[in-house]
Structures are given as structure tokens and as C-alpha cells.
């Protein structure tokens, strides 16, 4: 990767078009680096990606930031509102509750799936067995399904006479049955477990591909030294998966905090606001109440929160 160094100045700070893992691109720009004209030419190559990224990611993000300082309904002339939207958003108890719920969802969207993913990886790797592709596909399936379909299906599974309650009844836990998503105390947990179901497959697939890249010699050496399966998993597989775990953490944390569609189709924030999440409130402010300013301010706050948490995860998982 040393060759990549001269290419650095070519990348503008924010909209760098995917640096990528491999060294392919940096090497090519590296060859041209250092002289005047080819540098400009380099920018020309960047232009299409830059235009798309700028137009569809940077510009809307900046617009949102701008809107968050306006008192605007989307049609009439906007008025400058200063920080008013932010004070409103921050002082609203609804929002605090929603952010709290988002943080609880991280447990279900992120921590549990990573744990499940690691467990599955530990069980399925090590020795090759028939039907691996089958397992992988089955576990990854929730990722492929549209979340709206997932949500609708789970609403039925969780309903009064749905499969979940039937199962509980069948194993003699009939006393526990309830309409899970309508239950004041359990709705958030029930919702979170849908997220666990969705995200576990993704984590597993990430970890499995990571585990396959670990040099088999390490496993063999550990086995020769008398390490059992658990020991090998903890000492060889787990450290080798640091990168993948951090990536899974980032993706799933974002999914937890930004969750919208799943909540929208299953509980829509109910019962009585018990499953409100920030993105749902952004949607309501913008499209039900026509308050673009407050919706944008809330979106900005949510974004900052996501950036903070994601940065923290990356920091924790950084390789020394």
C-alpha cells in the first residue's frame, strides 16, 4: 500500500470515491502523481463519480442542514429560524424517548446479531461440511427480503393467534402468550427481535467470508499445539475477524438508529409511543405536519448521533 501514499493529495477530503480495500486504484493514480497536467486529468476521471456523489449525497445533506435553520412548510416563503428548530427538537420529550428506543434497538440490531453471527461462524467453519451454501443462503435470506414484507409477516407471527403464541402454547408456556407488538412493555423487545432475525444472517455471512480468509495453517498449528475447537475459535478465528466485526457493528448500528420501515409497518411507533424511533418522527414532522425545518433539525441531530456512535465503534475496533 506504500505506493498509494503519493496519491493522497488527489483525494478531496470528503467526497473521495471509494478508496477501496485493494491497491488497484491508488497505484494507477500514483503513477501520474507529482506532475501538473496529469493531475488535472485525474480530476476529470473523478468527475462522474464526484458529480453523482455530490449531487445525490453531499448536496442533499447540505440542503438538510440549511433547511434545519428555516421555518418552512415546503411551499411558502421560508423564514430564518436560527436555532429555534434545534431547541424545539432537543427539548421535546418525545425525541428523548425515541433516541432512547433507538439505543435499545442497538442491542437487538447489533449486539445480538453479532453474537449470533459469531456463534454460527464458529459452528459452521472449521471443517467443511455439505450444505454450507444452503445454510448461508437461508440465514442471509432476511437481508434480501424487503423490510416491509418482513414487517408485515412478523406482525402476523406476533399476533394474538399467530405462530409465536401457538408455539408458546404448544411447549406449555401458554401463560406467556400475548399480542407481542401491542403489548405496552414488550413491543420494543418484540420489534428488536425482528431486527435480530434480519441482521444475524448479514453478520454471519460477513464473518464466514472473513473466517475463510484466515490462513488454515494457523488453525492447523493451533490444533497441533492441542487447542480445542473453542480455543481455536477464541484465539484464531475471533482476532482474525476484528475487521469484519467492526464493519458489522457499523452497519447494524446505523440500521438500528435509522430504522424506519420496519417500525412503520409493524407498530408505527405504538403502542402509545413505546416504539417511537427518531426516523419515524422525522417522517411525521416532514410529511404529516409539513414542518420541514424541525424535521431537518431532527435529521441532523440523528446524523450526528450516528456519526458519533459509528466513529466510536471504529475507534474501539482499530487495529494497533
Amino acid at each position: 500500500m506504500g505506493e498509494g501514499a503519493p496519491a493522497r493529495p488527489l483525494h478531496p477530503p470528503a467526497p473521495a470515491p471509494r478508496p477501496g480495500r485493494g491497491g488497484g486504484r491508488p497505484r494507477r493514480t500514483g503513477r501520474a502523481g507529482g506532475r501538473g497536467r496529469p493531475r488535472l486529468k485525474g480530476w476529470l476521471y473523478l468527475l462522474p463519480a464526484l458529480a453523482v456523489y455530490g449531487g445525490f449525497a453531499i448536496y442533499p445533506a447540505l440542503s438538510t442542514l440549511y433547511f434545519s435553520f428555516l421555518d418552512w412548510d415546503g411551499v411558502q416563503l421560508p423564514a430564518w429560524a436560527g436555532l429555534e428548530n434545534y431547541t424545539r427538537v432537543v427539548s421535546d420529550p418525545l425525541l428523548a424517548g425515541a433516541i432512547g428506543n433507538g439505543l435499545v434497538l442497538i442491542v437487538f440490531f447489533s449486539l445480538l446479531p453479532i453474537a449470533v453471527g459469531l456463534l454460527m461462524t464458529g459452528l459452521l467453519t472449521g471443517r467443511p461440511r455439505r450444505g454450507m451454501t444452503f445454510y448461508r443462503t437461508v440465514f442471509f435470506l432476511p437481508q434480501v427480503l424487503p423490510l416491509v414484507a418482513v414487517g408485515t409477516t412478523w406482525r402476523w407471527l406476533y399476533s394474538g393467534d399467530g405462530a409465536v403464541n401457538e408455539f408458546l402454547g404448544a411447549v406449555g408456556l401458554g401463560g406467556l402468550t400475548r399480542t407481542w407488538l401491542g403489548d405496552y412493555d414488550f413491543a420494543l423487545v418484540a420489534l428488536g427481535l425482528i431486527g435480530t432475525w434480519c441482521m444475524s444472517g448479514l453478520c454471519m455471512v460477513l464473518f464466514m467470508s472473513g473466517a475463510q480468509k484466515i490462513d488454515p495453517a494457523l488453525h492447523e498449528a493451533a490444533a497441533l499445539d492441542g487447542a480445542g475447537r473453542l480455543r481455536r475459535f477464541l484465539s484464531v478465528t475471533l482476532p482474525g475477524l476484528r475487521r469484519e466485526i467492526s464493519i458489522a457493528g457499523v452497519i447494524t448500528t446505523i440500521a438500528a438508529l435509522a430504522s424506519f420501515d420496519l417500525v412503520f409497518v409493524t407498530t408505527n411507533g405504538g403502542p402509545a409511543g413505546q416504539t417511537n424511533v427518531p426516523a419515524l418522527l422525522v417522517y411525521r414532522l416532514a410529511f404529516n405536519e409539513g414542518d420541514i425545518g424541525a424535521a431537518s433539525a431532527l435529521a441532523v441531530v440523528l446524523t450526528l448521533l450516528v456519526i458519533a456512535l459509528v466513529s466510536l465503534i471504529r475507534l474501539l475496533a482499530r487495529e494497533k
Binding site: A16, P60, S63, V250, A286, V306, S311
Partner: peptide, 25 residues
């Protein structure tokens, strides 16, 4: 998520805000 920390965060943040204002007049 395969980007360095800040970039990936920024990218996802941008995508988030994009959703929030995709439909704005």
C-alpha cells in the same frame, strides 16, 4: 462500510439526510 471511519460515517449520514429531504420541494 468499507471506508475509513469518518468517511463511512459521513457517507451513511449523507444517505440518511438524503432520505429526509428527497421529497422536499
Amino acid at each position: 462500510a468499507l471506508r475509513p471511519a469518518v468517511l463511512s460515517a459521513l457517507g451513511s449520514a449523507a444517505a440518511l439526510t438524503l432520505t429526509a429531504c428527497a421529497a422536499l420541494p
